[in-house]
Nucleic acid binder design. Sequence first.
DNA 1: ATGAAAGCGCTAACAC
DNA 2: GTGTTAGCGCTTTCAT
Lengths: 356, 356
Amino acid sequence: MSTPTVYDVAQRSGVSIATVSRVYRNPDSVRDQTRDRVLEAARELGYVPSGSARGLASRSTGVLGLCFPDYADPDAEADGADAEDDDSAVMLYSDQIIRGMERAARRHGYALLIAASLDGGPQSLVEQVAGRVDGFAVLARTVPTEDLEVISRRLPVVMLAGPREIDHLDHIEVANADGERELTRHLIEDHGLRRLAFIGGEEDSPDAEARFGGFREACRAAGLAVPDRPAVRVTMMTQAEGAAAAEALLDREGEHPQAMLFANDQMAVGALHALERRGVRVPEDIAVAGFDGIPLGRIVRPALTTVRQPMRRLGEEAVDLLVQRLRDRDREPVSLMLPVSVARRASCGCTPPAGA
Amino acid sequence: MSTPTVYDVAQRSGVSIATVSRVYRNPDSVRDQTRDRVLEAARELGYVPSGSARGLASRSTGVLGLCFPDYADPDAEADGADAEDDDSAVMLYSDQIIRGMERAARRHGYALLIAASLDGGPQSLVEQVAGRVDGFAVLARTVPTEDLEVISRRLPVVMLAGPREIDHLDHIEVANADGERELTRHLIEDHGLRRLAFIGGEEDSPDAEARFGGFREACRAAGLAVPDRPAVRVTMMTQAEGAAAAEALLDREGEHPQAMLFANDQMAVGALHALERRGVRVPEDIAVAGFDGIPLGRIVRPALTTVRQPMRRLGEEAVDLLVQRLRDRDREPVSLMLPVSVARRASCGCTPPAGA
DNA sequence: ATGAAAGCGCTAACAC
DNA sequence: GTGTTAGCGCTTTCAT
């Protein structure tokens, strides 16, 4: 009584299993009458082709994968709850990348398998995904480089949004330095600010470092002092840490900075809250800027000036790269850099554009 | 030179394939020394276990699935582009359900396979997903009922956010009628409005109908005239249709309604735009309300009063139901109804709560 | 147009 | 603790 197989369908419709298989894979190669008999039998039996068996026999799954870090920001969740809204406002990178990949994958006839990295050994993550897909994308720092090294020998892997850790892999990154440089330039030239503080992440966070690099370039170009390192470094880049960083800067001796540039939006949002609690007005007393362009940044007041990353497009490009490599395993590794754009909103002193 | 298998690893490390298998499935059942040898050989060879083969042999994939409709609202996209923001503000149900399911699935050790219904025959959708997962969730009206009937004989299926089309399946819905009733009551009692117009979808849209039902209940309870059918019916429930519906109501003879209640947020947002173009002030001249609680509703001005659905929780509950049924195939079918809540914002005349 | 047979790479008893 | 041996359900030549 268990799950029917090709054999059951074949027997019931009086054909061979090969014919049953053909009906599903290449319907036109079977006579109409035969096909109808098979389909009818399948229906009666409740037959559904086994993806595993297919995959095994055909050596391809029709599925692409995505591994991403578990970027859940606990603060963001709490915040959402406080503010009476559910988590609808909290959409992270990964969600947008998923959207982009899902769409693109579908266009190419693939389904998408997603898995966030669990703390319990990366082994499991990699196994879950790598073994069941024809190729997959990995968000930076999700899977240990050495594992990728091994896996990428067996199937196409494209690395997303980080430095190119393995040079024979396809790779897509966003213009972190360009974006932060332009944002900083805007603050300096258009708003006339000169005392800027950059709040960064750990030194081994390539994105945060690249952004800091852009910040420095802009300072240098403007003839300002070029700091060797961020005014503050945090580890998780969460809202809580952003708030703490803002307070720490406020408590430092000497003049306050005129602007705080955070390595990501989450921190900037946290800082906005902290500054409000301390009675510091934004942008009148101090300008605040983030990086990423998460939806939450548009909802907070003042709306957050930031650098928008084209995350969804990142997902789409990832799929395209994967599909192309699946077609030609020997082509040269590709490395793309996607452009970003500065979103000038209220937190830097720019008037927000007319309400939608 | 092709993809290494257990045999290759076994040979290279001088053990049997069974031991190789054990190393991956149950490491503790193998002596340390042996395990290290195997792992080393695997590493050298670039071995990755085949999910297909595993699935075939063990009759389970460790993957749960989600089928959802391709709800892309073309207007929403265009709108986003116009407004200079990328699509970050446009997060649909499905995205939130995906989030919820991914999280919950991961907690239970599953990965998530997602696929939006393609126009090209549902057959493909169903095959793609159904054959490769241990169970899956289906958003209402994504897969033909008859297909579900067949498939659900083979693996657990939970139906989401719609009526219970198949009564032996697990099923989760949201309290559409309750929510709309409460929203309507609020408009009538708290704002003193009496001429209300409900803009619905097609009659075969269960959600829209349930909401209309709640609207009617509230009218009845308040002693107002109870309409037989929505003031306007549209087909796709997009922004464009919402705008058109609003204009149509404005152009009708007789008194204008004091409030327009739309069957979903997309339409309400479209209406907001249309009303602004016509110089009709919201909420002074007319109140507007939606249903769903999409992020976009918080961004538009005035912010949209609506009924928030717990979409993410829907995803989580779906996974729980799936996991439970996987454990006990014979348990009674479960049907849950998740509560909703009214979000009182500016478009109905309520002052929005203090900015976050 | 259809059938027969040989795997695909792994897991799961069951022996040892 | 480790090896042997059957399959798991399907695709795919190669015949017919």
